[in-house]
Design a protein around this nucleic acid. Structure first.
Length: 678
DNA sequence: CACCCTCGAGTTCC
DNA sequence: CTCGAGGGTG
């Protein structure tokens, strides 16, 4: 090719590429593949490097920043997309203000906005004359990836800015910043579908959103439930320029963007602190994940005047919540023995902070769970604190699985007694079936004395272990045969403590029959079924003589529980225990009046779920209160729940209730409903 | 038979 | 809170 031909080809290329750009970005009707496009650009670049004189300012090579990605074109942001400095508590927020007030005393009297900090991907959107022309990921803040076509599949992204008669005129050139993310509910729904199809499930909403937005096939992006919220005007030319962050948000809304809701306007730093903490409490009831709150000085000019330190503008700060999800190394897997003999594996973790506490252990539920999630020792695993308390392992991070990772094989003997383990047909759990297993005995005793059963105060885990170790107690009935002399021998015991313990054990004979049945630890018989059996049989003698057929008749008891009950009473070891208990005078009967009969039953037919802390009630007291008045207390919110009783710092039940539209009561509301005079 | 709801059991940290 | 299982229902 001679020079003249090359030069005309170069000019031709510019026109061709511009045409394709137009089709791609504006008309959304590309007629060539991305690869072909990249080839054209590559050819152009090659020619331009040969004839640099011919590079025009409007050449596509200039427009795309000169680089051609193998996946996406890189674009330079009109101005760097800055990150934010982080704060973690109220003190960090106050000292941030103190610092900047020294630079400009006027900020001390400034007002602020507090917005939720969405956990998604930042995108930068360009509109020319009201038409969406380009969208890019944040990238490194200077250069991002151009994902215009994918962004166009988002329902919540306006392709053009509507013009209203009395609304603001759209700017000639507008650049905004927003966040792309997936609602938690949509995410779960997506994973449910994936599971049904036998496809892989996604790990986090954030990663899924990132993957979808950067997918080469826009159809895939379109199929994901991505949402967009816009919260900053980066550039606005040829129209009104907002003076404050609040005005910006209003303007963005008028332009047709979805903006984050419930943005708090604060007049001083203490209000800011309050608002940040409120977002922390609200976090769990939001439809999407947030990892903090963003505090901005409302006046944009004032914020800008403070300048930038490193990559962080001084006029704003991110208040970060403690991470709810972290990753750490799984050092080993241990196995616990439950009171029913169930073997439960647990993860021994490299200690890590999650949501403000150090976590070293987390349950792995059962051996199938380990296999299903393909969890291996030395894997890096994702840990989450469910609700706010109990940590659990979500799964391994396969991408960083080390060579040293080893698959785990469940033990074939009980870790406590070394008897062979057994499985039950159709059940996931593995069992130690040795009736003399010391671990089971300890757990069984713990259950027998625990607060929810016979409530023997002063008899805790440590003491139970001690009594078993010393051979003083070989079954629950032995508790009633403990002698003062034996107890005084024990470490840390004196006359007084021994007497108190004996008195506590003695008082357990006064507990209701229902609690006693629950305390025995029959598989499948918990608090509710125990109460059911107590009201049906009224005495231990009658219960012990029951039959399978009779049990099945009882509402709430099916063949499995019935069989477990019959089996329990048939076991000679248990018959022996019962005989000893009866002999000791531990043989409750259902008393005619339970004390609550006389109360009116205003809550009859209603079911309640309790969450959070109530001021005037303990957890147990509120339960009794509701039950005494005819209401039912259940553990999980469902569509059949009548009311959620919510106190201070409610858990995730609150979100669930809101979602299902279940009415929420506070303590006063409950009392009122129960007909108490106010 | 497929669902939904409820119950039981084990669970972490301070 | 989680998961699994049992029980009831459409």
């Amino acid at each position: 090719m001679d020079a003249a031909k090359e030069k005309s080809r170069l000019e031709e290329l510019i026109k061709i590429i511009q045409e394709h750009n137009h089709r791609y970005h504006v008309l959304d009707m590309p007629i060539i593949s991305d690869a072909e496009y990249d080839q054209l650009v590559a050819e152009l670049l090659q020619l331009e490097s040969k004839y640099p004189d011919l590079i025009t300012p409007d050449s596509p090579s200039q427009r795309v920043g000169g680089g051609v990605s193998d996946r996406f074109r890189k674009v330079q942001h009109p101005q760097p997309i800055l990150s934010l400095a982080n704060g973690f508590d109220a003190e960090d927020l106050r000292s941030w203000l103190d610092r900047i007030a020294k630079l400009n005393p006027k900020v001390a009297a400034s007002d602020f906005t507090v917005e939720p900090k969405l956990d998604g991907l930042t995108v930068v959107l360009h509109y020319r004359n009201g038409i969406f022309v380009q969208g890019a990921t944040r990238g490194n803040g200077e250069i991002g990836e151009e994902v215009t076509r994918n962004l166009k599949t988002l329902q919540s992204l306006p392709l053009s800015i509507p013009v209203f008669q009395d609304g603001p005129a759209p700017p000639e050139y507008l650049v905004v910043r927003g966040e792309v993310f997936i609602d938690l509910e949509d995410f779960e729904e997506l994973n449910r579908k994936q599971e049904e199809l036998g496809e892989k499930v996604y790990q986090t909403p954030r990663n899924t959103a990132a993957g979808a937005l950067r997918n080469l096939d826009s159809a895939v992006t379109a199929a994901r439930p991505l949402r967009l919220l816009v919260y900053t005007i980066v550039t606005s030319e040829g129209s009104e320029v907002p003076e404050s962050q609040l005005e910006s948000l209003e303007l963005l809304r008028a332009y047709g963007f979805s903006v984050p809701e419930n943005i708090v306007h604060c007049l001083d730093i203490e209000e800011v602190v309050e608002a940040c903490e409120a977002w922390g409490e609200r976090r769990i009831s939001l439809p999407y994940e947030i990892d903090g709150a963003v505090v901005k000085i409302n006046n944009i000019a004032m914020a800008d005047s403070l300048g930038i330190v490193g990559k962080d503008p001084r006029g704003a700060i991110a208040y970060k919540f403690p991470a709810q999800e972290v990753t750490t190394e799984l050092l080993d897997i241990g196995v616990n023995v439950g009171r029913t003999g169930v073997l439960t594996p647990y993860a021994i973790l490299d200690a890590v902070e999650v949501g403000g506490v150090i976590v070293r252990q987390a349950t792995l539920h059962n051996f199938d769970f380990i296999q299903d999630k393909d969890i291996r020792i030395h894997d890096r695993v994702r840990i989450k604190r469910a609700g706010d308390v109990i940590p659990y392992v979500k799964g391994p991070i396969l991408e960083v699985r080390p060579e040293s990772a080893v698959t785990y094989s469940p033990p074939d003997v009980c870790p406590a007694c070394e008897e062979k383990v057994a499985t039950i047909e159709g059940e996931v759990a593995w069992y130690c079936v040795n009736p003399a297993c010391p671990a089971q005995l300890v757990r069984n005793l713990e259950h027998y004395v625990s607060r929810t059963t016979l409530d023997i105060v002063g008899l805790g885990i440590k003491l139970v272990e001690q009594l078993v170790e010393q051979g003083l107690v070989k079954d629950v009935a032995d508790l009633y045969r403990l002698k003062r002399e034996d107890l005084i021998e024990l470490e840390g015991f004196g006359d007084k403590k021994a007497d108190n313990l004996l008195a506590a054990i003695e008082s357990s004979k006064q507990r209701p029959l229902s609690r006693f049945i629950f305390a025995l630890g029959i598989r499948g018989v918990g608090e509710v079924v125990g109460a059911e059996l107590a009201t049906f049989y009224c005495s231990m003698d009658r219960l012990a003589a029951t039959t399978l057929e009779e049990l099945i008749e009882i509402e709430g008891i099916g063949p499995n529980i019935a069989q477990a009950v019959v089996d329990w009473f048939a076991l000679p070891a248990n018959q022996n225990i019962l005989a000893k208990l009866k002999q000791s005078g531990m043989w409750p009967e259902l008393s005619g009046d339970s004390g609550a009969e006389g109360l009116p039953q205003p809550l009859e037919g209603l079911s309640f779920v309790v969450t959070g802390t109530l001021a005037g009630f303990s957890r147990k007291a509120v339960k009794d209160y509701i039950q005494e008045r005819g209401g039912k207390v259940i553990s999980a919110v469902s569509s059949k729940t009548s009311y959620l009783v919510s106190g201070e710092s409610p858990g995730s039940k609150f979100a669930k209730a809101e979602q299902l539209g279940i009415p929420v009561l506070d303590e006063a509301g409950l009392r009122e409903l129960a007909g108490e005079p106010l």
